[in-house]
């Protein structure tokens, strides 16, 4: 917490207004009882009181549910393809929860790999992620089991912590530190402020009671991988709706499609889901026509395949897949039910 700053709550709107001059500022906003990141309206900071997490994970800002990759127009000489107009505006997202912030570092490696994904990376490079420490986690949260936690800073540029009358402000990345360092609205935090933040964070961590043992989940999944009856049982109630993947902060699967009428149209990409059997369907066969294979792929991608490639578990414990599942499929229960390594060897 060295060099930490603070801002009085009544000055937060002023700070965001200041940042609005250089960035398009997004903040949690509520409509129809659902929280989303939306353009900040210039005054409302009431989210500090009601906001727990947004329904869409923060990935939606960088990998939108649907986006145009390029437009296509046909004329007598052939086709003309044009990229969407370039947007150079920086974007500051205020209030990102630690679980969602962490998802960005998990997604970055995928989109940076070998062939860079210009759409995702351009948005990432123009963004400032301002995190908000979790003080009131949900029952479904299990971030502390997957290398995250209510006060984790991975993926953030700056982190705010609500310490009562003030918010503690810490620069995390170089970009974030620079932004915090030169700001006159921010005052230097005292030892008392920092101690208060520490206590609040510990209390928040204690509130996360849902815990799973992920130490050897990779090995345990590998051990049951070919056990069809286990996966049949695990997947029995799944209705393949895809909500757990579409609203998962770390799921990034997408589809690419054209839409064109009268010689004008566009190529779009949209989120796709390994929960859908169409996702892998080929003309003659489908390797994952069976639901149990799709459920196995979803879970194993997060806890086995992705870790094999990039070391980390591709889950941040945000709990959306538990909160939003229409049939109460619970990833933590399934992981808990994996036979211990020594059992499966028998």
């Amino acid at each position: 917490m060295a060099d930490s700053k603070k801002v009085r709550k009544e000055d937060l709107a002023g700070l965001l207004t200041e940042w609005s001059r250089d960035y398009a500022v997004l903040a949690p906003s509520r409509a129809d009882g659902v929280a989303r990141m939306a353009a900040w309206d210039g005054e409302d900071i009431s989210f500090l009181d009601w906001y727990r997490n947004t329904i869409n994970p923060v990935k939606s800002l960088f990998l939108p549910p649907v986006e145009e990759m390029f437009s296509i127009s046909r004329n007598e000489r052939g086709h003309r393809i044009e990229l969407p107009p370039k947007d150079d505006t920086g974007c500051l997202v205020f209030g990102v929860r630690p679980c969602d912030a962490r998802s960005l570092i998990l997604l970055d490696v995928v989109f940076e790999d070998a062939y860079e994904d210009p759409y995702y990376l351009d948005r990432r490079r123009r963004s400032i992620v301002v995190g908000l420490c979790c003080t009131n986690p949900c029952d479904s949260c299990f971030c502390t089991s997957v290398d995250s936690g209510p006060a984790a800073t991975a993926g953030m540029d700056i982190m705010f912590t609500d310490i009562g009358d003030n918010l503690l402000v810490e620069g995390i990345s170089r970009k974030g530190k620079e932004l915090v360092a030169g700001n006159a609205t921010l005052a230097k935090a005292t030892r008392t402020d920092e101690n208060r933040a520490r206590k609040i964070r510990l209390a928040a961590e204690k509130k996360i009671t849902r815990k799973i043992d992920t130490g050897d989940s990779k090995e345990r999944l590998l051990a049951v991988f070919e056990d069809e009856s286990f996966w049949q049982q695990v997947s029995a109630k799944c209705v393949s709706c895809g909500v757990c993947t579409l609203l998962c902060p770390t799921c990034y699967c997408f589809d690419i499609n054209d839409a064109m009428t009268g010689g004008e149209g566009s190529r779009c990409r949209s989120l796709d889901s390994c929960a859908f059997s169409s996702y892998t369907k080929m003309p003659m066969e489908n390797p994952r026509a069976d639901k149990w294979r799709r459920v196995r792929n979803k879970l194993c991608h997060k806890y086995e395949f992705y870790p094999m490639l990039f070391d980390n578990i591709a889950c941040t414990g945000c709990g959306r897949c538990i909160r939003l599942c229409p049939v109460n499929w619970d990833i933590t229960q399934v992981l808990d039910s994996l036979p211990a390594k020594h059992e499966s060897k028998i």
Partner: peptide, 19 residues
Amino acid sequence: LEKRMKCGIGKCGRCNIGN
């Protein structure tokens, strides 16, 4: 091996066999 593919560059996900 043959699988359904979209992106061709290991991102869109569908052609995976395990990792």
